[in-house]
Amino acid sequence: MKVFKEILFKAVTYFAAIFSILALFGIILTLFMEGIPMFQEVSLREFLFSSAWYPTNEHQSFGALALFFGSLAVTIGALVIAVPIGLGTAVYISEIAGSRTKEIIKPMIELLAGIPSVVYGLFGMAFLAPFLIRNIGIDSGLNIFTASIVLGIMIIPIISSMSEDALSTVPRALREASYGLGATRWETITRVVIPSAKTGIIGSFVLGFGRAIGETMVVIMVAGGAAQIPSSVFDPVRPLTTSIAVEMAETVLGSIHFHSLFALAIMLFIITFITNLFTELFLFKKVK
């Protein structure tokens, strides 16, 4: 009986461990199972290099390029905002703030990280967009610019907390040596601390990129939704995630359009998979 219990315990433990692998394979399998059928009617070439996304026209076309650029535009915009602020906050917390200030800033960042994305979307759509129309004289507030601001704020906590982890692994002795040589705080930060934590910091940017490009609710609500390759930051775009989420509700199960949305998801999965791989590599280096 006792032996049986031991074996059962081990079996349950192994099953749980293997479950994550199964879940990941399940995700990959379902994406490909439902995505591949699209390529019976749409060439890979059209899908990757055409920017004409007209899934519901009489002459359907499924070019994902504009959607890809839509995702890229808002993600890069978000990084432009989140990288300086996120890294700045991390450096401030780890190098300058006293323990009292730290105790205020850290929960603040945690609070920011805990706000659901749909609430950010609501804020962008119902407040920020009209606010920008009134104040900077644009016709529509739902565009790359607004989406980048909201997405950027959303990924500040990711960048700042991971950069801070990286900064905290820099040995104290390096800082002390730098101060000992007469360097100022700014010189120590920019020439000693940040260069030594470089890999972890870049890892945090990559992670922020992955999070922003996969974000759905904010871009549905704030990016505007027009499937076009943008020519200005005030153009509306339609990121991959928007197409998947919005059109899935409208399409017929099993149609080419339905399969094409899974093909978009494959594209998104590959992008985030590569970003993940990069983060892993950076983190692994850090540990070494």
Binding site: S20, A23, L24, I27, L31, L207, G210, I213, G214, E215, T216, T241, I244, A245, A265, L268, F269, T272, F273, T275, N276, T279
Partner: peptide, 8 residues
């Protein structure tokens, strides 16, 4: 899995 977008 931790990095897979929620829409997926």
């Amino acid at each position: 899995l931790a990095g897979v977008p929620s829409i997926i």
